[in-house]
Design a protein around this nucleic acid. Sequence first.
DNA 1: TTAGCATATGAGATACTGTATCATTAAGAA
DNA 2: TTCTTAATGATACAGTATCTCATATGCTAA
Lengths: 153, 153
Amino acid sequence: MLKVDLQMIENERAKFLRHLAKAGRRVSHGREIIFDEVMRSHGHFTAEELVKECLQKKLKVSRPTVFRVLNDLLEAGIIRETAFGDKHRHFEHVYDEKPHHHAQCIRCHNFIEFPDRKEDKIYHQYLEKQGFKILGHEMHFYGICKDCQLKEV
Amino acid sequence: MLKVDLQMIENERAKFLRHLAKAGRRVSHGREIIFDEVMRSHGHFTAEELVKECLQKKLKVSRPTVFRVLNDLLEAGIIRETAFGDKHRHFEHVYDEKPHHHAQCIRCHNFIEFPDRKEDKIYHQYLEKQGFKILGHEMHFYGICKDCQLKEV
DNA sequence: TTAGCATATGAGATACTGTATCATTAAGAA
DNA sequence: TTCTTAATGATACAGTATCTCATATGCTAA
């Protein structure tokens, strides 16, 4: 499991370097630091969480650099942005290839992820019939998670 | 069609007035102006669009009032907030009772709405089995609409 | 190694959305 | 019309994300 993750990280790093080279960008200190931080995170993260983490660990990167590198990583296809209804930018890793959806708890704001189902194709067919070219889709449930229900009492 | 809409608006207005009365709130100038503006909009709108519209038409309402009345309308169940991945607050009318999903064009930012399907229940069952209490859900497709594809050439 | 150039960076300013504060205004009951 | 209380606007503020620009740094060529 750990071994697989290390392999994955190397694959992603190579992908990132290829993208930078192709675009005539440099492999700078900031890009390496932030790439490592992003790879260290699992599942979802927001730009703000990443900024705070970097400040807390006293990594030598500034707020604008975090955002700039996040955009690099988006361009390189290493992370993708997901749509949530708050004012933060949410991201997740792309390497987890399986399409999936999210359920967010309105109390603790944690996520549950679950795999998508072939039934979603019904919507694809419908939209494509209308001439809409689909680039992605996401189901977003919201509610109260098991733990928070227990806390309610 | 127009007649139905007028009837709907009156129903919604009555609902709003009932809500205000029940909560001991007043039927103020600002609430009336903004209620009318909201009813004039079809489908989706954002808080910012509404603010800009009011300023443009030189309606006698300030930015904070727009937000305050939007919260009143939310409380009254006349509009609901929908989750999208940008930093704006998105709203839609509730009177369109049928649950539905959205597809947003990444070029023109317009929406296509489409009805939900009973197949979504598969996810409900899955989440409920995990102890997650569902309060709502929304499917969000993104892509390029027919018109924007034609413009691309 | 070094020089020279183009890119990356940080500090600070700025944009933008949404809220809080509070003195003033106005709705609605008596 | 008067009085009480809620609603409002002006203003300041909070928080996230971006822009600007002088400086620092990576990279290439010699």
